[in-house]
Design a protein around this nucleic acid. Structure first.
Lengths: 207, 207
DNA sequence: CCAAGATATGAACACCGTTCACTATATTTG
DNA sequence: CAAATATAGTGAACGGTGTTCATATCTTGG
């Protein structure tokens, strides 16, 4: 049945084209400009057509989010070549912030927008949101390696990873949501660097 | 000129009524249901009327945000009766998380929604966003006290406050945006507690 | 009592996500 | 090959959003 296969292939191609158009819209216009109508216009289809390939906008955002988490996990890969656990952890934090600043729209998608998570809830799978978990597991792994090497002393790699994740996420989220406007423009970045440096220092010796 | 005064008073009263209605809508229906039309309906006015008292929705949200920051700063006040700096800092973090979980809609307003910050940017004042700064300064103060007492060893109370703020904010933001769905329901809260406990532990002795 | 100013609003504009009856095309069947 | 059927796509509509503006009403100083 070569025809059925071709149809299948064409279908996923169109699905991919929709995602690509949405992705581009995200990067070039910002998440607020990503509407079903704008996406449709970009691929020269009617808005209604998108609903043949995605149940609703949340499902589309969810698919996009999964791609983004793939990219983030990819960005983490390079840190595993770093030998010392503390340096490796520091690199993970750095990669996270770097990713947030270089791809603020993907950061929105992954960590701030409610839409994709509503799709996760609507699915109600037993092991939901695998792409998010996979990215987080990279950090768990780094913590575990540090514990195994006797460098980190903590009861649980998962909670330790959550602590580190929260730290860098908090900084990135406050910045991207303009909440660091309480600081003068010229002090802002320096202050963020100081906060991060202090954190790594605290991990070593305490406050 | 008693009349002019009365007019002035009535004007601010109506402004306040609008804010109160919006506040109530926030608490009872969630931030997504707070529309100009819903607010107008609640106070039995036309939507257009609100624009006589607020330039646009962002200005209204900004006013609401300021009230929320007042409440948060208020919630921080009690920690200053705690003697030991480390315990006091721990209490600040606890208060922050408590506030986030008890008033998730106010948390949205203060730290996640883009609307209020666009109003701040539109104003372009020399010292913008004073209410946010005031709340943050409570944490700076706690850090400074710890440094003065010789308990905290860090170069700068402001960057140290930013680190602590980011830590608790990150945890609250990840939770409220449903990003902790990677954890099973029954482990979630325990894991958050562990992460917070680990952080305070790390502040003492390092990792 | 009238003119002027303050206050309020209905209707409209341009968006948004979503649905559905409908058409046009491609494929399968008789 | 023709008829029946399945697939793909869409225009128009529904109810929602923030916002603007001409119009109407009500209050007040002269």
């Amino acid at each position: 049945m070569g025809i059925a296969e071709r149809k299948e292939r064409e279908k996923t191609e169109r699905r991919q084209a929709i995602l690509a158009a949405a992705q581009q819209l995200f990067n070039e216009q910002g998440f607020e400009k990503v509407s079903m109508r704008n996406i449709a216009e970009a691929i020269e289809y009617s808005p209604a057509t998108i609903y043949l390939y995605f149940k609703d906008k949340n499902e589309l955002l969810f698919a996009l989010q999964n791609q983004a988490f793939g990219q983030l996990a990819q960005a983490f890969e390079s840190v595993f070549s770093i030998q010392h656990p503390a340096e490796r952890l520091r690199a993970v934090g750095h990669k996270y912030l770097e990713f947030a600043f270089e791809h603020p729209e993907l950061f929105e998608l992954m960590f701030i927008m409610t839409g994709p998570m509503e799709a996760v809830e609507a699915r109600g799978e037993a092991a939901p949101w695998a792409s998010g978990r996979a990215a987080f597991d990279r950090v768990v792994q780094v913590m575990q390696q540090g514990m195994d090497a006797g460098v980190f002393r903590c009861p649980n790699s998962e909670s330790a990873a959550l602590m580190v994740w929260s730290q860098v996420h908090g900084l990135a989220a406050l910045f991207l949501r303009k909440r660091l406007m309480i600081f003068p423009d010229d002090r802002r970045h320096a202050l963020m660097d100081e906060a991060m440096n202090l954190f790594t220092q605290v991990l070593k010796h305490g406050l």
